[in-house]
């Protein structure tokens, strides 16, 4: 037995001796700090330090869908977007809950692309999000800092961003199972986009959008993001079109979303919305041309 132990010891010693490889520099090359522009320093102060977000305005093809041909964002548009996103997204959560909440849940990479990503079916991709980690915003170069409107920003980016943020919320703490039961029989998966699945039908069935029909998680975050970013008039309009049974379901769903926000995260959804709206009202006080 002793012999065996000795042998084992020898084996261990030998095995240690072969790990002589030295670790070399990382393959990830840090940009030389001397090359940082004033905008890069601004991003350090406004994105990296408070939120730990990498705001990638220099397009990296490797970060985007290789099947598209794209052009990078121009720096002046990127500056405008950096200010708008902070004002209308991160700071809305800061104001409603606190900055620690925002920092904890917010996707860690925002990647800008200057051109649209055109699909062959005459549509274009405006924003995508991957697994709560990264948000990619397209067609930034067409934003005019002098005339940009809230509708433009909401339709293109903000609604999607609130949608994605809501996904991260429910992936962190689940919402009650009774939510999925409300429209249990009406989820249709990928068929949500077929021509016959119209917006009007979605409303009547108690969905806030066509896409909400795909599955309960999408349903949940569509309610939240549309309620917050599209305003009360739009919500009322959807309820009116939804008819009696549809609107009853929508109201029930919204109620559960609101309860979830209070019970799990400790904030009122209406407070989030009013903060979004009051910040949106001051959109034009932002200096989008200078840092």
């Amino acid at each position: 037995m002793k012999k065996i132990l000795l042998l084992l010891t020898a084996a261990l010693l030998l095995s240690v001796s072969c790990s002589e490889e030295q670790f070399s520099d990382s393959v990830f090359i840090d940009p030389d700090p001397a090359l940082k522009t004033a905008f890069d320093h601004w991003l350090d102060r406004n994105y990296v330090d408070p939120y730990n977000i990498a705001f990638k305005y220099k397009t990296e093809d490797i970060e985007s869908d290789m099947s598209f041909d794209l052009a990078p964002a121009s720096t002046d548009k990127a500056i405008a977007m950096a200010k708008l996103i902070k004002h209308l997204w991160m700071e809305v959560y800061d104001q409603t809950i606190n900055i620690a909440f925002t920092k904890r849940l917010i996707p860690k990479v925002i990647h800008l692309v200057g051109s649209p990503a055109y699909n062959t079916n005459n549509t274009m991709v405006l924003g995508t999000a991957e697994g709560g980690m990264k948000v990619t915003l397209y067609n930034i170069n067409s934003i005019d800092p002098l005339t940009v409107t809230l509708t433009q920003l909401t339709d293109r980016y903000l609604k999607t961003m609130y949608h994605e943020f809501a996904h991260i919320m429910h992936q962190t703490y689940e919402y009650p199972t009774e939510y999925a039961a409300i429209s249990n029989l009406d989820y249709v998966g990928n068929d949500w986009s077929v021509a016959s699945a119209t917006e009007a039908i979605a409303y009547e069935l108690g969905f806030v959008s066509r896409y909400a029909r795909s599955e309960p998680n999408e349903d949940f975050v569509e309610i939240l993001s549309i309620y917050v970013t599209r305003g009360q008039a739009n919500w009322d309009n959807i309820l009116a079109q939804a008819g009696e049974s549809g609107s009853a379901k929508l109201i029930q769903k919204l109620g559960l979303v609101k309860e979830y926000c209070v019970n799990v995260w400790g904030f009122e959804l209406d407070f989030l919305r009013s903060n979004f709206e009051s910040r949106a009202a001051t959109l034009h006080t932002l200096d989008l041309l200078n840092l």
Partner: peptide
């Protein structure tokens, strides 16, 4: 080497133009 912010000369050749010209000037 990447020309990583928009340049009106360089990216003229690579930007997509429309759905039917999604590769632009390739």
């Amino acid at each position: 080497l990447s020309f990583n912010t928009y340049n009106k000369v360089m990216h003229y050749f690579s930007e997509p133009l429309s759905s039917s010209q999604a590769s632009g000037r390739a």
